[in-house]
Structures are given as structure tokens and as C-alpha cells.
Design a protein around this nucleic acid. Structure first.
Lengths: 205, 205
DNA sequence: TAGGCCATGTAATGTGTTACATGATTAG
DNA sequence: CTAATCATGTAACACATTACATGGCCTA
């Protein structure tokens, strides 16, 4: 399970469940999401397995806080995960599944609306990522190989987002252009004039 | 749940659980994965909700087969899903999480090995996608706007994979180059010479 | 005084994975 | 005769989402 490992990674500095939730909203959300109601039981489980230890402290604001810290076992498990090679092959793209089956609607203008909405979403995401990049470069310079270790790794992850989301925006534009050409030649509904490449055995993504 | 909707999409033609599993291995696997042990109960559930109907038939090879077909309710639900706008915001990238925390190892050569393995994986994936694209173009021409409706949508999904995976390979190369520059200036382990941009509030992906 | 943030959790339900269990037919 | 493919499923467990439940402190 990756959530456990992400929590171990974040807990290299002690934190409460609530703090960790904020870390998700701030930075981690771009590659993983989790709710408090998932974080709390997961922390408890990790403590039972002795990967974390916790103590209750009074809070300056609000109720007592339970602060978790990483144990040696936890640190070992984190390193084991990091050494286990890239965790690939679990990606899921619900919106691609929708597009893949969207011929069922039988009206390409619906596909066009879908792709436009997707493009909007992706391009605002890209704008956010570029803004972060701009801030980081302004603060630390444009040579990430001279950043600190944590900064170097995080900048690399940020760059992947920029590459990947950017390429998807480009794909939306390409696809919208193809849709418009298709609509121009057959403004109503569906079937193009060519053969039906029901390449069901082959795939997208 | 998207698996349910994907099954409804595939069941525009009648099929058995086993057939559907094969559809996953052949085409759907590039944006979703599912095991038989998940498919069978999901089909049963969909039948209970009257979105599918099934009948048992003798099989030419092997045991009897239970063939599922879409009902009107099922078709309606499929269309509802397709009309509900792009399902975004649920993407999870476990390997980015690993990279993000990989400074914990304290040896950049480990990061280099990780990125190399990731690059290998992604570029063989890309090669597969390009091979499919080549076959489709050979069979149906290079103008997808003249494909049939299903083919047009599936080709669009394929193109997203090519854009997206291709951009990730480029990102691996960029990152490996940065790692090598960094290793050249500080061959041992960790800390670069610049500041420590622990931009924990900022993020990747 | 109303709403937001701090801070904790549980319960119910839904979704997904891994392992187990069975057995016929067919191709090598 | 052996392995792959066809074909069905259950059981146990792991993971995730949504809704519920509580309550103090601070700011507008």
C-alpha cells in the first residue's frame, strides 16, 4: 500500500494526522489523495506494527494533538519501499475509459464538449504547476542540480507534472482539431466515411 | 465506480466474464486493470441492479458459459456516465511518490538507478503504443477523422498514450542528465552546494 | 454570533487484490 | 501425458470513500 509509505515519508518530521492532511492538500495531492478518515486509521495501524510511535500533547489552538514519529522499523520500511524499484502498472485513467466508449453516445459534439472540459481542467492544472516552478526558480535558481537533496528530488517530480500535463493539453488540442475536421465533413452525429477500425484488440493510453 | 461502467461499455456486445477478462488484457489494460475475481462479482451485482441480463449457454470448448447482455437500464447508466463530464482528479502515481521521498536514501546513485528502470519501462510501453498506431494506420489510413465512430474514439485514446508516455520518457532523460551533472560536481551521496529548497509546501506532478 | 480552523475519531459501505478451489477440452 | 486455454466462482483481506459525531478557540 502506497498511502502507508507516503505517510512514512512525510513523517521524517513528526506530525499529527491533521498536519499530514494539510501536507496532502499542499504538496502530495498532485500524485496522491487521502482523506482524514483514511489517514487516522492508517496511522493507528502503522503504530500497531511499530513503524510509528505517538504521544499526546496539548495544542496551542484547539484540542490535544497526537504527534507521530517514525521508529527505526518505520525508517527501514520506507527505505525498503524506495529501494523496491518504480511502482508502475497501476495507473488508472477514468476519463480515458469514458472517451474510449464515447462513440456509444452517437454524437461527436458530445465528445467535443467532453474534450473541451478536459482541456480546461488540464490547462489550469498546468498553469498551477508552472507557477510553482516559477516560484521555485525565483527562490533557488534555475539549476536544480545545485539544490539541496530534497529540493532536487521534489523539483524532478514537479518537472514530470509539467511534461506530462503539458503533453495532455497538446493531445486535447490535436484531438479537438481532428473532431472539428470530422464535424466539418459530417456535421451530424456519427459514422465517418472510411472503414470501421474496430481495433478492439488494440488499445489506447 | 468505473469498473462497472467499463464493463457496461464493453458489454455493448454480449460477452462472458472470461471474454471481458480478455478484453482487459487486450485493450483496456492501458487505462484500467481488473482481475476475474473482481469481474465476476461485479457482473453479478450489475445483474441484480438490472443493468445486465444473463443466460447460460453450452460452450464449444470447456464448461458452460454465462453470457451477459446489456439491458435498457444498463445502456442508460452507461450514457449517464459518459455525459457526466471527465472524471478527473483521481490519478495516483506511486512512482512519483517514491521519487519525491527518495532523498531519504541519501545516495543519488540510487535515484539514478530508479530513473533508469523507470525509463526502460516507459520506453518499452511507448514502443508498444507506437506499434499499435503503426498497425492501425497501415490498416485504416493516417486520417482518423475518416475512421468509423468507434475507431475514431479509440484512436484518440491511443494518441493520448503516445503523447503522455512519450513526454514521460523525455522527462526521464532530462532528469537523468540533471542527475549526472549533479553527480559530476558531488560524486558522493547527497547535498548539493546550493541552498536547501525544502519547498514542502510546494509539489510535484 | 456565525463560520472557519484546529483536532480527533467511528461506522457503513464500496472497491480491489490475492489466494484458494474446481474441472473439461485441446494442442503438442 | 502435460500444459495451456476455457470457464466458473468463493473467501479473506486490504484499501478507500462518505457520512456521521464532537467540541474548543479565534476572527469577522
Amino acid at each position: 500500500m502506497s498511502l502507508e509509505h507516503i505517510l512514512l515519508g512525510l513523517l521524517r518530521e513528526p506530525a499529527t494526522g491533521y498536519d499530514l492532511k494539510n501536507a496532502f492538500s499542499e504538496s502530495v495531492r498532485h500524485f496522491w489523495s487521502a482523506e482524514l478518515s483514511q489517514i487516522y486509521p492508517t496511522l493507528k495501524r502503522l503504530e500497531q506494527r511499530r513503524m510509528l510511535r505517538s504521544r499526546v500533547e496539548p495544542s496551542p489552538k484547539g484540542p490535544n494533538r497526537r504527534v507521530y514519529t517514525l521508529t527505526d522499523e518505520g525508517r527501514t520500511e520506507l527505505l525498503r519501499w524506495l529501494h523496491s524499484g518504480p511502482a508502475v502498472g497501476t495507473e488508472r485513467f477514468a476519463y480515458l475509459a469514458q472517451l474510449y466508449f464515447m462513440d456509444a453516445i452517437g454524437d461527436l459534439r458530445e465528445t467535443r464538449a467532453f474534450m473541451t472540459a478536459l482541456r480546461d481542467h488540464l490547462s489550469s492544472w498546468l498553469a498551477q504547476l508552472r507557477a510553482v516552478e516559477r516560484d521555485v526558480i525565483a527562490a533557488y535558481g534555475d539549476a536544480p542540480e545545485r539544490y539541496g537533496d530534497a529540493g532536487f528530488h521534489r523539483f524532478a517530480a514537479l518537472r514530470m507534472g509539467i511534461h506530462s500535463v503539458g503533453s495532455k493539453v497538446a493531445w486535447c488540442d490535436e484531438t479537438l482539431a481532428a473532431i472539428d475536421r470530422r464535424l466539418a465533413s459530417a456535421p451530424r452525429a456519427g459514422a465517418g466515411s472510411g472503414g470501421e477500425p474496430d481495433h478492439r484488440k488494440e488499445f489506447p493510453s
